[in-house]
Amino acid sequence: MAKRLLIVDDEETITFSLYQSFIHSKKDYEVVTASSGEEALERIHETPFDLVVTDIMMPGIDGFELLNSVKRDYPQTDVIIMTAYGSSIYKEKALKEGACDYVEKPFEMKEFKKLIIDLLD
């Protein structure tokens, strides 16, 4: 069964470019995108994911709330936090609350993809 990846960001250019990058790669992943924390939780409740990549600052349910929900209800799901705030405080908080990694925007697509692939494989 193909590994499932959920990309969550209210910046649609980011979700779209990441989505395009994965569906054109040789890896057979099932990639789903969501533009808010609420939408992400709906998709997760429908079918759980292996990995969730989420932005922090989103209207409504933010990345940290999503992280906490996922870690509480789906402890097997890995979560990567990404943010445009380059502050070490967010990094510490994300890792402390159970994220497996933290990525600053703008990221290097190659490195980011490698990180995701390593986690999924």
């Binding site: 250019t13 980011i14 779209f16 470019s17 990441l18 925007k105 697509m109």
Partner: peptide, 25 residues
């Protein structure tokens, strides 16, 4: 500045990742 930096970085991240997808293709 922190607010502005955040608002600018998000579109930059979108442009960069899109450009890198094009580059890869």
């Amino acid at each position: 500045s922190a607010g502005i930096a955040h608002e600018i970085r998000n579109p930059l991240a979108g442009i960069k990742s899109s450009a890198q997808v094009i580059e890869e293709s």
